[in-house]
Amino acid sequence: MKLHAAITVLRPRDEVQRLWQDPALHPRYLDEIDARVTFDPAPGDRGTEIHVTLEHDAPGGKVGKAVAKVRGAMPRAKAMDELRRFKQRVETGVIVRSDGSPEGERAERKLDQRPAQPLHENELAEAGAS
């Protein structure tokens, strides 16, 4: 069973591929889960499409597919987090942080939001924002 994640980055393909290999920017999580990554030029002035395919072992039949889909939900969400962070850092130079999600986009944070009010001193380092 295949799961797919994609994002478009507003840079030419050769630059995106070069930055993807930069150790400071490279999304390591995608190596851990053994994802296949391809880069395609987007139409017009839209930059470069990054496509990530995650392979999932799925036992046969409908039930097997359903199980794989549930088990794949988190890896796919985390792959999207990595793609968004890469796009943010390439396009804006920073990881986008809010009070509710001080670490930046993170699948695990979706159901565990901080209140939207400033962080206490001791939370800053934890969020990687100090």
Binding site: A77, R84, K87, Q88, V96, R97, S98, E105, K110
Partner: peptide, 10 residues
């Protein structure tokens, strides 16, 4: 804006 929402997945 494609980048300014750190809860984009939501």
């Amino acid at each position: 804006c494609e980048n300014s929402n750190p809860n984009a997945g939501m």
